[in-house]
């Protein structure tokens, strides 16, 4: 077992345990903080896979952006009508059945797939090749995402407008 295996198990444990805590804790603020750990653990796994850009984006967008939004959302809406948000862990049995089924399928895939292990050099950085792909093969998608974001902004503004 080398150092990379140890780091992998560390991040994997962080991810799984914090994800479990997200769904099992009764306090929604604790859930949000645990979600931060989950995102962080996933970012670590990305680094181990050699996806440096993805890992950084994961940290900036999810941990830095979305999570803060969730926390603000929870804290602000709590005070709107003076009623505490009702949080509870419900539907444990159906959820366990569904997740058990799902985990079974994933495990079956994992066992039955004929994995080929290849040793490759980690690229120094993936940003350059990602940029080239975005500007060549995926140029149309790149442009259309711009339109999509514009529409999302217009939609959000029109929902939030004053009457």
């Amino acid at each position: 077992m080398n150092i990379y295996d140890l780091i992998f198990y560390l991040f994997a444990t962080i991810t799984v345990l914090s994800a479990l805590a997200v769904v099992s804790t009764k306090n929604i603020i604790y859930s949000a903080y645990n979600l931060m750990l989950t995102f962080f653990g996933v970012a670590g796994l990305y680094v181990l896979l050699g996806a440096d850009f993805l890992a950084i984006v994961q940290l900036i967008v999810y941990v830095g952006g979305i999570l803060i939004l969730i926390l603000f959302g929870v804290m602000l809406t709590n005070k709107v009508n003076g009623m505490p948000i009702h949080t509870e862990v419900t539907n444990i049995i159906p959820a366990s059945i569904t997740i058990g089924l799902f985990a079974g399928i994933v495990l079956a895939f994992f066992m039955n797939t004929n994995w080929k292990s290849v040793t490759t050099e980690f690229p120094a950085t993936t940003i350059q090749s990602l940029g080239k792909l975005l500007m060549n093969e995926y140029i149309l998608i790149f442009e259309l995402l711009g339109v999509l974001l514009l529409i999302a902004l217009i939609g959000a503004a029109s929902i939030a407008r004053k009457q």
Binding site: L144, L148, I151, A152, A156, S158
Partner: peptide, 10 residues
């Protein structure tokens, strides 16, 4: 799909 659905949600 997203380009179609997001305007529909709004």
């Amino acid at each position: 799909l997203e380009q179609m659905s997001i305007p529909f949600y709004v």
